[in-house]
C-alpha cells in the first residue's frame, strides 16, 4: 500500500496501480475517452490529466502510477482549463448533429462537454469530411464523428484478436481504416461488433432495424443463446420488442461477444413466430386453443401408454431450453409417463 493525497485528503491505495484506477476505486470521477481497464494504458485523449505536486506539467492519470506521498489535484483550475481546451478541440472538429445523432444519451463527448460547459467549438476552420463506411450489414463507421481515441483499434487487436482496423495517415488526416480503405466488408472483420460496443462517441454505431433513443429502452441482463460460452449481455427492450443487444461483463466473456449473440436477435419478434397452438386435421394445420391442444396430447399419452406401455413413448428435450425446462421435461417422462426414453441433441 502507498499513501496518496487526492484533493487534500489522504488515502491508502494499492501499490502499482494508476492514478486513474486509484481514483476510480475511491469514487473520485476523472473523465476519460480512451481508457479501458482491459487494455494497456494508452494516453491518447489526455482528458484524464491531473496536477501532481512538484511536477511542472499535467500528467495523464491513466498512464501514471501512484507513488507514496503523491499529492494529486483532480479538479484544480489548471486541470479544468486543460480539459476544456481538449474538449473544445475535439468538438471543433465534430459534426454538430447531436440532435439527431444515434449516440445521444450515451455519448461520452456529449456528457463531458455538458459537464465542462463546452457549448460550441471555438476553433473555426477545416473539418473532417469522409464518406461513411456502410459495408457491414450490422454497423457503420462514420470517421467524421471519430475522436481517434483508438479504443476500437485496440479492442479489435488486443481483445478480439482480429486486427481488422488500424490508424491510417497522420496529424489532421488520421483516421481509422481497413486495409486500403476498402471498407469493413472486404477486411478481416468478423462482425463481432466489439469495436462498436466500445466506441465512446457515435462513430461506430449499430444499424438499428427500428428507431429508438437510448433513454427509451430498458436494459435487461441475460445470457446469450448461441453457444456454450454463456456470454452475459443486455437485451434492449422498447415496448414489447427486443430492438438491440449490448454486451455485459461476465466472467466467461469479459465484455466481448460474437456476431450471432450481438446481432442475431431478429428472430425474437420475427413475423414467422408461431403464435398459437396448431392441430393437424386431414393433413393440414389448424389453429387451436391451448385447452384443445393439451387435451389432445394428454389423451394420446394416456391412450398409447395404456395400449403399448410407457416405453412406447419418448421425448427429446432441448439444449436450447433452460435447466428448469429440461428438469421438468425429464421429470414428466420419468415420473408421470413412466419411461426413461428421454434424450436431447447433446451428440449433434
Amino acid at each position: 500500500m502507498v499513501e496518496i493525497t487526492v484533493n487534500g485528503k489522504k488515502y491508502q491505495v494499492d501499490k502499482g496501480i494508476t492514478i486513474l484506477e486509484a481514483c476510480n476505486r475511491l469514487g473520485i470521477s476523472i473523465p476519460t475517452l480512451c481508457n479501458d481497464d482491459r487494455l494497456e494504458p494508452y494516453g491518447a485523449c489526455r482528458l484524464c490529466v491531473v496536477e501532481i505536486k512538484g511536477r511542472r506539467n499535467l500528467e495523464a492519470s491513466c498512464s501514471t502510477k501512484v507513488r507514496d506521498g503523491m499529492e494529486i489535484e483532480t479538479h484544480s483550475e489548471k486541470v479544468i482549463k486543460a480539459r476544456k481546451e481538449i474538449l473544445d478541440l475535439l468538438y471543433s472538429n465534430h459534426p454538430e448533429d447531436c440532435l439527431t445523432c444515434e449516440k445521444a444519451g450515451e455519448c461520452k463527448l456529449m456528457d463531458y462537454c455538458y459537464e465542462y460547459g463546452i457549448k460550441k467549438g471555438s476553433y473555426i476552420g477545416e473539418k473532417k469530411k469522409y464518406p461513411i463506411d456502410e459495408s457491414n450489414p450490422f454497423y457503420y463507421y462514420d470517421p467524421n464523428k471519430c475522436i481517434l481515441c483508438g479504443k476500437c483499434v485496440r479492442v479489435c487487436r488486443d481483445l478480439q484478436g482480429t486486427s481488422a482496423i488500424a490508424f491510417k495517415n497522420r496529424g489532421f488526416n488520421t483516421k481509422v481504416s481497413t486495409p486500403f480503405d476498402m471498407g469493413l466488408a472486404t477486411s478481416d472483420c468478423v462482425s463481432c461488433g466489439n469495436c462498436v460496443a466500445n466506441c465512446p462517441v457515435g462513430a461506430l454505431m449499430p444499424k438499428k432495424p427500428e428507431k429508438f433513443r437510448t433513454w427509451e429502452v430498458k436494459k435487461v441482463k441475460t445470457t446469450c443463446i448461441y453457444c456454450g460460452v454463456g456470454c452475459q449481455m443486455y437485451l434492449l427492450v422498447k415496448g414489447n420488442r427486443v430492438v438491440g443487444v449490448e454486451p455485459a461483463r461476465g466472467k466467461a466473456n469479459n465484455g466481448l461477444m460474437c456476431v450471432k449473440g450481438r446481432f442475431g436477435y431478429g428472430f425474437i419478434n420475427h413475423p414467422d413466430r408461431l403464435k398459437t397452438p396448431l392441430i393437424k386435421r386431414n393433413g393440414k394445420f389448424e389453429e387451436a386453443t391451448w385447452e384443445e391442444a393439451y387435451d389432445l396430447i394428454v389423451n394420446k399419452i394416456k391412450e398409447i401408454r395404456e395400449k403399448y406401455g410407457p416405453d412406447s413413448l419418448g421425448g427429446l428435450s432441448s439444449a436450447k431450453c433452460t435447466n428448469e425446462e429440461n428438469y421438468l421435461f425429464q421429470k414428466m417422462f420419468r415420473a408421470l409417463i413412466g419411461t426413461n426414453n428421454v434424450d436431447h441433441c447433446a451428440r449433434l
Binding site: K218, R273, T276
Partner: peptide, 25 residues
C-alpha cells in the same frame, strides 16, 4: 443456462411472450 465451464447463469425475461406463445416450463 449452464455454460461450458459449468457456470449456472440467469436468463431474464425482457418482453412478454410473443402472441399466444408460452414459456416451455
Amino acid at each position: 443456462f449452464t455454460n461450458t465451464e459449468r457456470r449456472v447463469q440467469r436468463v431474464r425475461q425482457g418482453i412478454k411472450p410473443v402472441g399466444n406463445s408460452k414459456p416451455d416450463w
